[in-house]
């Protein structure tokens, strides 16, 4: 490790800035993190702008217009390492719901009859526009995982997002299964890594971490049928965070 602290900058695109808030609210841990890095740009906590070259760019939010595409490309050029964090950045997140509609309809709805002044594009996750080196999923990010990824990035080794279901962590936390409570939960198809944060606190899993890479879709259907959950409700729940998954699928097909 070099003696000078790595320069780290935080950026945001279309998002609620909740993940930045999570980082800023890290508490005591933040002091340890700041011992390790030099934060050169972070809109939510400081007004300075960073230097041209940075070591690590931490990017929140999804890419939703042409201006954003240009901006994220510039950030990519400035940074040695790019970390996408939060669902909006890693999987498109709730912004992906825009892709359920025609773009012009969306613009009219939002901007009224002057919609022509405002451009918009299909919502994309960051990796669907530029290369991403590390992913920290979650809405908002789970701080222990964020720290883990940051450490991996500073060590220069990859971080592998767990590719098993949230159920694994949930069972280890000995939560009563939401399905046993008669509530539909996205845990079975959602990637672990959050330590079943939501379910530990009495909520369901909303699928904010994206889907496992090789889900047994037939098996999942059986489960949904067994618990008498309406299919359209499940698809709606899934699409709430994972609509941009279709872009990945489309790209895979092209290849």
């Amino acid at each position: 490790m070099t003696r000078t602290k790595p320069k780290v900058a935080f950026f945001d695109f279309a998002c609620c800035e909740g993940c930045q808030l999570q980082v800023a609210n890290m508490g005591e841990l933040l002091l340890d993190v700041l011992g390790l890095i030099e934060v050169v740009e972070f809109r939510e906590v400081m007004s300075e702008k960073g230097p041209e070259k940075i070591d690590v760019a931490v990017v929140e939010g999804s890419i939703t217009d042409k201006h954003a595409i240009e901006r994220i490309k510039k950030i990519r050029d400035r940074a040695k390492v790019l970390i996408a964090y939060g669902s909006c950045a890693t999987i498109g997140g709730v912004n992906g719901m825009k892709n359920n509609f025609k773009l012009d309809d969306i613009r009219k709805e939002v901007y009224g009859d002057r919609f022509n002044y405002f451009d918009t594009v299909e919502t994309k996750a960051v990796h669907q526009v530029v290369k991403v080196d590390y992913f920290v999923n979650g809405c908002p990010v789970y701080i222990p995982e964020f720290v883990k990824v940051l450490k991996a990035a500073l060590q220069g080794i990859p971080y592998e997002v767990p590719d098993h279901a949230v159920c694994v962590e949930c069972k280890l936390n000995e939560n009563v299964c939401m399905y046993d409570r008669g509530v539909a939960c996205m845990g079975p198809v959602t990637r672990a890594g959050c330590n079943s944060w939501c379910i530990n606190n009495g909520n369901i899993c909303y699928g904010c971490r994206g889907m496992v890479s090789n889900p047994n879709e037939n098996g999942a259907m059986d489960i949904i049928k067994k618990y008498n959950i309406p299919m359209d409700m499940v698809i709606n729940k899934m699409n709430m965070y994972n609509k941009c998954r279709e872009i990945d699928k489309r790209e895979q097909k092209k290849r």
């Binding site: 098993h164 279901a165 159920c167 694994v168 069972k171 280890l172 079975p188 198809v189 889900p215 047994n216 037939n218 098996g219 999942a220 059986d222 489960i223």
Partner: peptide, 13 residues
């Protein structure tokens, strides 16, 4: 094979 969703709950418990 058709039914298992490979969640790993069976082995954890």
């Amino acid at each position: 094979d058709k039914r298992c969703v490979a969640c790993g709950n069976c082995t954890n418990v």
